[in-house]
Design a protein around this nucleic acid. Sequence first.
DNA 1: ATGCTATTAATAAATCGCTATCAGAAAATC
DNA 2: GATTTTCTGATAGCGATTTATTAATAGCAT
Lengths: 145, 145
Amino acid sequence: MDSDKSHIDETTPRTHPRARRRTRQRSVIQRVLLEANRPLTPQDILLAAQARAPGLGIATVYRTIHTMMTEGTLVAVGIPGEAARYETAGKEHHHHFQCRECDGVFDIQGCPTDDLVKLAPKGFRLESHQVVLYGVCPPCTGMPA
Amino acid sequence: MDSDKSHIDETTPRTHPRARRRTRQRSVIQRVLLEANRPLTPQDILLAAQARAPGLGIATVYRTIHTMMTEGTLVAVGIPGEAARYETAGKEHHHHFQCRECDGVFDIQGCPTDDLVKLAPKGFRLESHQVVLYGVCPPCTGMPA
DNA sequence: ATGCTATTAATAAATCGCTATCAGAAAATC
DNA sequence: GATTTTCTGATAGCGATTTATTAATAGCAT
């Protein structure tokens, strides 16, 4: 019984669980993130998920975020001066737009990568970049969604 | 005594002083910011300034930052996931590079503004933008400064 | 169904960045 | 140099975000 586990190579030291379980809370949070199609704050996630999983706690949101980040199914999106937001991994290279009215962050496509690469001065090894556009989103300009 | 002040129009409600004094601490902090030529965190400022003003406290750094921001001689620079940094105002439009080794932030010149403007999707009113390049700075690549 | 254990909700507590407080130090003014 | 009032340093406090704790709940394998 006990010797059966002795050969298991724990190369991935898990902070949390060793065998994942499919819980209602986790499913709902994952669905919220998938359907949002834009980066959400932990609070955003909590609010949206509580509609489908009453009683959901903020700690579970953070735990699920960690789990998904570890799995590689979620990535953090940082916006200057803001708490981290999270969006599903696997999207193609893109950047973000933040509305100064509602503070919402939206995905935008396209990127003048070549032009940005040229900005790196001599001696600086460029590895990645990030663009954030600021302004007002359609709903906040009075336009219908 | 009291009536003398009654005619003063306090249109600018000062959080802090009304008549600035030239103190050693303030001079040193301002010099640090001017000579840095790149955005510094309050902690950066504190460390650099303490060399020239022993005993300098963090509160004074924050106070001076506020004072200078109010004066318009300092602007805040936000880097995703980082505390605010500050650099002297008046520079022309530019962006920043952050070293993932030392976390230092450096000014870079040039900006493909036209290309970035095109990224804003229909219905989004673009007002400003920010570019952050990530990589390794010259000193951290082993190169001499 | 039962048992094992991952998971959860609630909440306490730790961080972090920044601000307020206040007595003493030090500019500016006389 | 004495006076006045700003300025400073030390530290407590605050708001926001994130993590740890813990007893109870609920997947999942048997």
